[in-house]
């Protein structure tokens, strides 16, 4: 749980608002709001990076690198309101580069995901042995079915499920979609997930 949630400071502000306030404070030499914001936004960056298929060990460094590039660019981010978007885009790009570096030559001919319409080409996060940690049958059923969704659906739902109150703009930044398409896509992905669960005879709705 993050500090904001614990202290109930969230109030009416969005994560984007708090990012802007943290940046303004940081420029004035006050670092406390930024510290809170780093605590709050780091899990989100983590899930963005992992959602792009970066292995856990590398994801650590990618997240750190995003924060580092943020402090190096504090002077050039003109609109504080755009900071959250800036971080999410940086995370997505850094993750993409990390995956490309790892895959070596094979990936050199690929383009950044937002240069193409082929969302399906995004690397799908591998199920891996991590899934073994799921001891409850219902949990592992849901995870198995979730992994059958298209990569973009997995990214969106993972993000929506991990964020406290994700706004459409943030999701649009993460996925490279237009804001207007986010609500529809999220709905479509949820609908797909529910349909797949309905088809699974071992799944029972609560």
């Amino acid at each position: 749980m993050n500090r904001q949630a614990m202290t109930g400071h969230t109030g009416d502000t969005t994560l984007g608002d708090r990012a802007a306030l943290a940046l303004l404070a940081y420029r004035e030499g006050r670092t406390a709001p930024l510290e809170d914001f780093v605590h709050e936004a780091t899990p989100l960056l983590w899930h963005v990076v992992r959602g792009q298929g970066v292995p856990r060990e590398d994801a650590e460094d990618v997240v750190q690198g995003v924060w580092l590039s943020f402090v190096r660019h504090t002077g050039t981010i003109r609109e504080p309101e755009a900071l959250l978007a800036w971080l999410l885009v940086s995370a997505r790009r850094a993750a993409w580069l990390a995956v490309r570096r790892q895959r070596g030559d094979q990936a050199h001919t690929r383009e950044l995901p937002d240069d193409t319409d082929e969302a399906g080409e995004l690397p799908s996060p591998s199920p891996g042995p991590e899934a073994e940690v799921l001891t409850h049958d219902r949990d592992s059923r849901l995870w198995q079915v979730f992994l059958r969704l298209p990569a973009r659906c997995q990214q969106i739902l993972r993000f929506v499920a991990s964020a406290d109150r994700p706004d459409y703009r943030a999701i649009a930044e993460v996925t490279g979609m237009k804001v207007t398409a986010v609500g529809v896509t999220r709905g479509r992905c949820l609908a797909k997930l529910r349909t797949l669960l309905d088809q699974d005879e071992r799944w029972e709705w609560a």
């Binding site: 899930h47 992992r50 856990r56 996060p125 991590e130 899934a131 940690v133 799921l134 219902r138 949990d139 849901l142 995870w143 979730f146 739902l157 993972r158 499920a161 991990s162």
Partner: peptide
């Protein structure tokens, strides 16, 4: 909510 819990366990 359920998916959020599962993601937290798996990753």
């Amino acid at each position: 909510t359920h998916l959020g819990r599962v993601v937290q366990q798996v990753d």
